[in-house]
Design a protein around this nucleic acid. Structure first.
Lengths: 190, 190
DNA sequence: GTCTATACGAAGATAGAC
DNA sequence: GTCTATCTTCGTATAGAC
């Protein structure tokens, strides 16, 4: 029988990811994670010997993996379907939180990464993985590697930038329009 | 004769902008601003009655205005020249700081805006102004308003997202490639 | 306009009981 | 595995002298 510990730990990581998305690294305090997850204070250094830093890194890693699996699920399909899924993930998050959330990886990258050992490496790794998976989808459809990399870079840049704009504008319009533009580009390239 | 105050105040705003770009909102502490600007501690609440919050908002406003003037300077020229200038501004910042800086408006948007009254409004205003100016450049070249807005939105989203990726990757490649892709799109549209 | 000193609160981390 | 108490550090803000 699965120990309750696993649930508690997972709830804490989930809470950290939410906080990171919503309030950035600085807002992802231990107290806030406890309040949101309902986990007991005594669990912090039990499940996360690395303390708050580990909590933050684990949360980013989890979201990174989740998105990676989502892109993998589009293997064999049209690249634009992967783009749609990717955008849909962020659109749902934006709407669900009334435009108060964004990408936790971006949040860590632009705020506080230098304070957390290993954060730069993790952020770079997650972005590189996402981009590599998009690139692979494109080369599978006959796009040259060079062009595929450039397009994947554009897809990642534009969607992530759009999520920031959506938040500011309190609307999904920036993301919707970006996806429309990118879809045409992807269709033309493949 | 201009009082020395003006210099001190400007240096403090500059320092705040640098800190925001580099360490995000949380890292933009009063102590850090003082250390970086060399301003005397007694000046803080003299020049900024609103304290740290005002310092942060003033810094974002200043960068917003600077970029706005840069886009205005391209009036009458090709839209891609405005894009080049825009990208060059961020590229210089990235290289000058060894990829430790990014857009301070993005930094405020994704980290800590909810803690600072008026921050959301200012962020939305700055982004909207930038996008409106790009849109105007495009309509001036005969692009339909609807298409111009979509392209301006893509330009803004992609460049801002690319700056984040540049930082993570410690390279200007993401921004360079995005600019190349966008340049073609702008040329084709105009 | 600028200085020092200080009040106040928030947050990370640890110790030691249960 | 979980709890409480506490240490320490840091950051904002204010008071009052110069």
């Amino acid at each position: 029988m699965a120990p309750r510990t696993t649930d508690t730990k997972q709830r804490m990581v989930d809470a950290a990811a939410d906080l990171l998305s919503q309030q950035g690294t600085a807002g992802t305090t231990i107290d806030a994670v406890l309040a949101r997850s309902g986990a007991p204070r005594g669990s912090v250094y039990h499940h996360f010997p690395g303390g708050r830093n580990q909590l933050v890194l684990d949360a980013v890693q989890m979201v990174g993996d989740r998105i990676s699996r989502s892109i993998d699920a589009a293997t064999g399909k049209e690249p634009r379907e992967a783009l749609d899924d990717f955008a849909a993930f962020w659109r749902r998050m934006l709407v669900r939180t009334d435009y108060r959330s964004g990408c936790p990886v971006v949040a860590l990258a632009v705020g506080g990464a230098e304070q957390i050992p290993g954060a730069d490496r993790l952020v770079a790794e997650v972005f590189a993985t996402w981009q590599a998976k998009f690139t692979a989808l494109l080369t599978r459809r006959g796009v040259t590697p060079k062009r595929a990399r450039s397009l994947a870079n554009l897809v990642l840049s534009a969607t992530q930038g759009a999520v920031v704009l959506c938040r500011a504008e309190r609307s999904t319009a920036p993301l919707d329009h970006v996806v429309a533009e990118l879809s045409e580009l992807l269709a033309a390239a493949a």
